[in-house]
Structures are given as C-alpha cells and as structure tokens.
Design a protein around this nucleic acid. Structure first.
Lengths: 225, 225
DNA sequence: GGGTGTGAAGCCGTTCACAGCA
DNA sequence: TGCTGTGAACGGCTTCACACCC
C-alpha cells in the first residue's frame, strides 16, 4: 500500500471505507475482534464480494478461519483516509443546516475538527456554538490562515454561494463541501464535493411515483459521491 | 415518451433533470426563452454532450437555430418527474437537521409539500415550525394515513434510525430519504435514498490530503445518488 | 464446507466522433 | 459554421465464477 497505489483507490471505495470503519468501531465496542466479509456486508446492506474487493484494494488480507481482524483493519483504514495530524474544518453559513452540521460533526470525528464558523448575522458573530466560535465574513482570510483550515463546508444561501466559495478558496481552503443548490467550479488543486437536498428529494419523489404506477422492483441508492 | 421509456431513464439523468429545471427557471426569470445545450452545461459545470444525452433520453428535441425552448422543456421535465397531484412529505426527527430541511424545503417546491414533522421532544410536539405541525411519534400512523404522506425524510439519532424507518414504512410511506449514518434496508415497493454527511466529509478530507501530497489533478464529484 | 482473493465478464454512464441540418 | 442527435468506444465499478486454503 504505497503512495501511488492509494491514489488509485476509487471514490466509491473511499466512501465505503469511511462507513466500514464506523461499523467496525461499533461491533468492536461490543467485544468482537474478528469479522467476516459477509458480516460487514450485511451491516452495510451490500455484497460480501464488494467488501472483499474494497479490502483487496487497500491490501488487507484476512484470515481464512476467522475473517478480518477488526482492530488492524480500523487502523489500516485510518492510515489511508486520515491525515496524520488531522484536518481543520470551517462551516460557512450558520443557518439551520450549518448549525446542524456543526452540532453533528463537532467532537465526533477523531481526525476532523470543526474549528470555526462564519456568518453575516450580527447576533451569531462573537458567539460560540457547540464550542465552535462564529466570526464575521471579513475574518475568513485571517482565521483560515491562522488555524490552517483546509476544508470548508458551505451552507450559505444560494445567492452567496459562489462568492463564499471564492472567499474560502482564496483564503486557502483545499476542499469544499457544497450543500448549496448552486453547482460550483473550483481551481485545480481544490477538491469539490456537492450534495443537493432538493435533487435527492425530487428523485425520491420520482421513484415513488414510478413504483406506485407499476411493479418496478425496489432500488437502493446511496449517495455521497 | 411513454410509460415504459420513462422507467428506463437512469438515476443520474433524473437527478440532472431536477437540476436543469431549477437552472432553467432561473434563466427564464431573466427573460430568456431559448437556450443551447452548452449554456445549460456551463451553468451546471458539465459537458454539453451530457446535457444533450439527457434531453435525448426524455425525447425532447431542440431547434438547431435557437436551441431548446425553455418553457417547453421545463414543462416536459415536470411531466416526467412530478406527480400530477403532488406528493406529501414528512420529516422524522426535528433536530437541527430536520429543522434545516423543513425550513429549506417548505413552500419551495411546487409539487412537494412538507405537511408534518415527528419528534419525541415534548417541547416541540404541538408546535408548528415554518407552518409545519410537529406530532409525537405515536401519531405517525394516523397522520401519514390521513394526509396520505408518501415520502419520509429521516433525521433522527442513529439509535432510532431503524425503528423510525420501520414505523414510517408500516404507516404507508413509499419513499425514504435517510440522513442517518445507519445503512437501511427497505421492502420491495419502497424507494430508499441515503446520504451520509460524515462519509462526504471524510471523503473530502481524504482527497485534500492526497491533493496536498502530489500534483494529482482536481476532481469534481456531485452526489445525491 | 465455508471462508478469502481475484481474473474476467458485465453493466452503466460518460465521452468521442461524426453525420445531419439550417 | 455552429448547433443538435446519436452510434460506438471508453472507463469505472460491480458481479460472476472459480481457484485456493484451513
């Protein structure tokens, strides 16, 4: 599992590794030390082959008798997806969604720290939420640089989306998680991940309609992409 | 564009149609009546071929001179993805995320109506948020049936995820949007869409790390999937 | 027998390349 | 010339099928 081969890991596998790890930590907490591919598969509602494929890609070998060693696997996944020193995250836009994310993510992930939030609301600026201080937008450059923030989660209103993204990137952010319905573009060297809740909801609505009007088999989609 | 051919439309295309429609409504509001595939592509940051493919799949033909007629295209997309009489949605779990979604979605989409929220918090039950009444969990069956709710958005804590999903489906919900980190399984005839924010964030973190340690070109991923 | 590991095949969605048209 | 529409090639991911091993 050298530098080069890590880069070859498909996006989808990276996503599943993140999920495997959390699942493994849960079963590990119950005292289990080993696990079979089909057990992981069952938890994730995917196939055992898929699990073995993913583990093959990260170069982990299981034991034929007992399956995979949970502890070692968790550590290996960590070596692949975590940064050794962790990464800092800022939330841009402390509306309901920004607040939800702050609440949901802060203090939970070992290696990802939400260290700042930015908003335009005078009532929020200067306050702390879940231990995360909120600053005005004019402080972005200063705080991002000082804290060495590498990831920005954007939850501002659509009208502000593009400007906020530009501000974040100019300040030095290298990864953008865009929860705005506005499609973005980023310069080379910056990673962009987008998720649009309205699209998801409309998609569910579409398939509910279609399922209702026929005997089309059920389908499962997991997103994150 | 008959019944059967609609079902063949790929998931990804359905997602993009939802996005095209919103983009088209925006440019339409500016007085534009026609649009070229490359213009749509530019807004969405995708390729013009992709746009034409999607429109080909829904059987819409443009004009070689002027491109696509915006009004007609919006209507066609509506015919495909909307239910004629609309669909009703309930939010399960009125925490920050549930509140954000309620706020974000209520009254916005023409054909999707958030008509109820469910929570266990005594302080929220009986209240209305954004005009959406909040009920206790024991009312799920009654309200879903009475209001004919077909879609459930699940934002409860992980521990409650599975039970809430089962409750919703037993009550008659036909589509689940799962924002819980717990992978779900649904019976045939129910559509499931899942999105896990932690996975997305860890994925961004991973690629930021990788980009930082090399000259790997930037990548764009859009999710909903 | 019941696991793992993996080449090969299959599937799905995107992109290429180009024909056709005003 | 500049656009649309589309067969064909391509690429990425998943699944099949099976070798191998305790």
């Amino acid at each position: 599992m050298n530098k080069e081969s890590i880069k070859q890991i498909p996006h989808k596998t990276i996503e599943r590794l993140s999920q495997y790890r959390r699942a493994l930590l849960l079963v590990s907490a119950k005292g289990k030390t080993h696990i079979f591919s089909h057990e992981i598969a069952e938890i994730q509602h995917i196939t055992a082959v898929q699990v073995r494929r993913d583990l093959m890609l990260i170069g982990y070998s299981g034991d034929l008798r007992k399956g995979y060693k949970i502890q070692a696997l968790v550590e290996l996944i960590g070596q692949i997806i975590d940064s050794p020193s962790g990464q800092k995250v800022a939330v841009f836009g402390l509306g309901n969604l920004g607040m939800a994310l702050t609440h949901y993510l802060s203090g939970r992930r070992e290696n990802l720290y939400i260290v700042a939030a930015f908003d335009v609301d005078e009532h929020k600026i200067g306050q702390s939420f879940e231990g995360v201080p909120c600053y005005g937008m004019e402080k972005v450059k200063e705080i991002v640089a000082r804290e060495n923030i590498t990831i920005g989660i954007i939850t501002v209103p659509a009208e502000e989306a593009k400007a906020t993204k530009n501000l974040a990137i100019e300040a030095g952010v290298k990864g953008i998680l865009n929860y705005t319905p506005v499609p973005m573009e980023v310069p080379e060297g910056v990673f962009l991940e987008e998720y649009d809740m309205i699209t998801s909801l409309e998609k569910v609505a579409f398939y509910v309609k279609e399922l209702g009007s026929s005997d089309l088999e059920n389908t499962k989609r997991t997103a994150s992409k």
